[in-house]
Amino acid sequence: MSSLLKVDNIHVYYGSIHAIKGVSFEVNEGEVVTLIGANGAGKSTTLNTVAGLLKPKSGTIEFEGKSIVGVPAYKTVFHGMALCPEGRRIFLQMTVQENLEMGGYSRPNSEIEASLANVYERFPRLKERYKQVAGTLSGGEQQMLAMGRALMSKPKLLMLDEPSMGLAPILVEQIFDIVKELNEAGTTILLVEQNARMALSVAHRAYVLETGTISMTGDAHELAEDDRVRKAYLGES
């Protein structure tokens, strides 16, 4: 297995706030890797830094062996990574189809038709509503749209920031099923979640993030059995 993303000892600041203090992790091709951690641990900051929205003060980030530190966010998508951001951030005033087309912004126009068909096949609900303005979709549909939009760029690495946030349990399960399917279809996934139980059940490997540093790492199933993880993140005693 070759390494797709390699983050080494990054430090990220918001002004004087030291949010990420030397985080290192790796995502191999074909894997689902999850970053779990409590509120404010730095999960979103880490993903946003990889995507290029934030710049690390020090440390290296390699994607397919090439350094992407300092590459702005609007270029990282052309390297083959897509971020499905926290809170979905779909374009509420645009239609479902327009949102998806924007997801394919980095691809040649000739590919858009096929990618759309592909996304609609995976999310038939979106196809039914392709002309609907995104702001009027339900929360679950908005999440599907956000994921569909990210898939439109045909990413090698799909980064999902809390895709289950605010969804009913049945939808949460559906979202994680989709994550599994996407991975089986060949997409490498970096998943950030507060729902540690679900995240550990679909992931191959996991990293636990605690106030800006990695406190534990290992095989996802082993971590799910670990006492400290069970106490802190799975709500067991």
């Binding site: 702005p72 966010a73 005033q93 645009m94 924007m102 980095s106």
Partner: peptide, 15 residues
């Protein structure tokens, strides 16, 4: 229109 709504989201589309 994307930039008008959400500049961060527009960037990660490649804009």
């Amino acid at each position: 229109r994307c930039c008008s709504e959400d500049k961060g989201a527009a960037q990660i589309m490649g804009i």
